[in-house]
């Protein structure tokens, strides 16, 4: 079941498109924003609301990188692994993050605080390496800076 707030936000998106199902990506984003990830139940609720099949919703949901079909931690670390960050040493950050959080890429820390995910170019190659936590972008990151950055997220 979608909440009233979710429905309202989805209704707004529906108004902007010629038919309901065209707003499915928006609906997925809205629900994920409220629930952190998209569960099977969320898929069904969205399908129901947009009058399409769950398979149709899931087909779209699983295509995109940033729709999470598994539970994620409270904060999401997106580490840029694209070329400029590669040249500028993102691999050191990768290693440092895995060590600090005791998780591998793609996993969620035991305290459920962080999920660590690889991400394609964040569009700040002139300040590589870069990473993003939730909506905050960090540029020119060095392993030594990580502790201070991570501290901000509880």
């Amino acid at each position: 079941m979608l909440t009233a707030i979710e429905k309202k936000a989805i209704d707004h998106e529906i108004e902007l498109v010629p038919y309901k199902k065209a707003s499915v990506i928006e609906a997925l984003k809205i629900v994920q924003q409220h629930r952190g990830w998209i569960s099977d139940e969320s898929i069904e609720a969205i399908a129901d609301y947009l009058e399409i099949s769950p398979a149709e919703v899931d087909s779209v949901a699983t295509f995109y990188n940033l729709i999470f079909r598994k539970p994620v931690g409270r904060h999401i670390i997106l580490l840029c692994d694209s070329i400029s960050c590669y040249v500028m040493g993102y691999r050191l950050l990768h290693k440092a993050l895995e060590e600090k959080l005791h998780i591998r890429m793609g996993q969620t820390s035991e305290d459920n605080r962080f999920t660590l995910l690889p991400n394609v170019c964040l569009g700040c190659c002139d300040h590589a390496p870069a990473l993003m936590i939730d909506k905050d972008l960090y540029r020119d990151v060095e392993p030594a800076l990580l502790d201070d950055i991570l501290k901000k997220y509880t």
């Binding site: 399409i52 099949s53 149709e56 087909s59 699983t62």
Partner: peptide, 9 residues
Amino acid sequence: GKDLNVFSA
């Protein structure tokens, strides 16, 4: 049909 689809990428 509604219940068969393509998933992932």
